[in-house]
Amino acid sequence: MSTPLLEVVDVAKRFSVGTRFSRQGVRIVHALDGVSFTVMPGETLGLVGESGCGKSTLGRCITRLYDLTSGRLRFAGTDISLLSQRQMRPLRRRIQMVFQDPYASLNPRRRVRDLIAEPLRVHTSMADAEIGRRVSELLDIVGLKPDHAMRFPHEFSGGQRQRIGIARAIALNPELIVLDEPVSALDVSVQAQIVNLLADLQERLNLTYIFIAHDLSVVRQVSTRIAVMYLGSIVEMGSADDIFLRPAHPYTQALISAVPVPDLAAQGSAKRIVLTGDVPSPVNPPPGCRFHTRCPIAQERCRVERPVRTDCGPGRSVACHFPNDVVHTS
């Protein structure tokens, strides 16, 4: 097996909320807790989970928009977990990010040409004419027209804006792109176009993706491997087929059972697992297994001892004390 492009080792991220003078004092939000995984070159790792489970925080930690509280990040063999923003700069051309909201991630006061040229201006010494040619080329690659370059973001639809964001991300031929819910804000018909564009680009430019999403059907379509997150940790990880066809963790099972099935006959036979209660607050996460408050098969041990994610097959791992006791729904 080749060397991993990205290694995430036991990463934690905590935010403090409030001040000494607020009513509840300083509270610590445990956004990420002991997250570990590796990403191989050329693959797409899907990150799924409910909103607030730390997916986006993880994406921003990987791109070092946030500092890690603890843990290690190794990118292509180099430890980047403690680099300062200044030291990160040369590496930024190799790790890029696409944001969820295509309306907020483009500066409304700059023309498309300048938005896409920004990484080229910062990282290369290309002449203006050359930059202009590259911008036209990039617009063409993402399916926009060269004369769109002189327009402002507000003149485009959500899907077109996301294409601009993608053009900006691929401008420097990066190796890894973190896609933070790139299609969640778009219409379903446009979602398919963007997903196809991303798949096409991956093939052409030899890209590695970390695809963050809460829409399971999209994730299944794009991912080679999937990591399921719950309350700041990864509860299960495996190939896309394993996760969808043989989910081992009760949380994954509940998620998969909630995916609408196009075939009505098949839907009738599948049992739907409905979770009760809300996601516990990350300010005060439950002891033991984080999922025990909502788990249909929780036992005494789950309330006390936190399960460690252990391998349970080739490329497969699950963090549950009773993964075998799970009722198979499919």
Binding site: M88, R89, R92, F99, S105, N107
Partner: peptide, 24 residues
Amino acid sequence: DFVLAAIGLGVPSYRILLRDILPN
């Protein structure tokens, strides 16, 4: 998001101030 995006692109602070923040 667009300032975070600029940081993610490796744009130096002075340029972010001048191009992304001041115009807004």
